[in-house]
Amino acid sequence: ERVRARYDYEAQNEDELSFKKGDIITVLEKDDGWWKGRNGKEGLFPSNYVEELE
Rank of each mutant, 00 (worst) to 15 (best):
E14N: 11
G33F: 15
N48C: 15
R6F: 06
G43N: 01
L44D: 04
L28Q: 05
S18R: 03
I25P: 01
G37C: 06
K36G: 00
G22C: 08
F19Q: 01
P46E: 03
K21G: 06
W35R: 00
K36Y: 14
F45C: 02
E1L: 15
K30M: 06
Y7H: 09
D32C: 13
W35M: 08
W34H: 06
G37S: 01
E42C: 09
G40R: 09
K41V: 10
L17N: 02
D15N: 15
L53N: 06
E54F: 13
K20V: 09
L28P: 00
Y49H: 09
G37N: 03
K41E: 10
R6L: 15
T26D: 09
D23T: 07
E54K: 12
Y7I: 09
V50E: 02
D23L: 02
N48W: 15
V27N: 01
N39P: 00
E29M: 12
F19D: 00
G37Q: 01
G40K: 09
A11R: 02
E42W: 06
A5E: 02
V3W: 15
K36S: 04
E29P: 03
E29F: 13
F45V: 04
N39Y: 13
F19K: 00
F45A: 00
K30Q: 07
Y9V: 03
N48K: 11
W35Q: 00
E1Q: 14
E54D: 13
A11Y: 01
Y49S: 08
A11M: 04
N48P: 06
V3M: 13
E42Y: 08
N13S: 13
K30V: 06
P46H: 06
E14P: 15
A5D: 01
E14V: 11
E54C: 13
P46L: 09
L17H: 01
S47V: 10
F19S: 01
N48Q: 14
G22Y: 05
D32Y: 08
D8M: 03
K20Q: 09
L53A: 08
E51M: 08
E1C: 15
V50G: 04
R2K: 14
K41R: 14
V50S: 03
E54W: 13
I24E: 05
L17W: 00
L44Y: 15
E10F: 12
Q12W: 05
K41G: 11
V27Y: 01
L53C: 11
R38V: 08
L17Q: 01
E52M: 13
Q12A: 11
D15T: 13
R2D: 07
I25L: 10
W34F: 10
S18N: 07
S47P: 14
V50P: 02
N39A: 12
Q12C: 10
N13I: 03
E54V: 13
V3E: 03
D32W: 07
L44P: 01
S47G: 09
G22A: 03
L44I: 15
G43F: 00
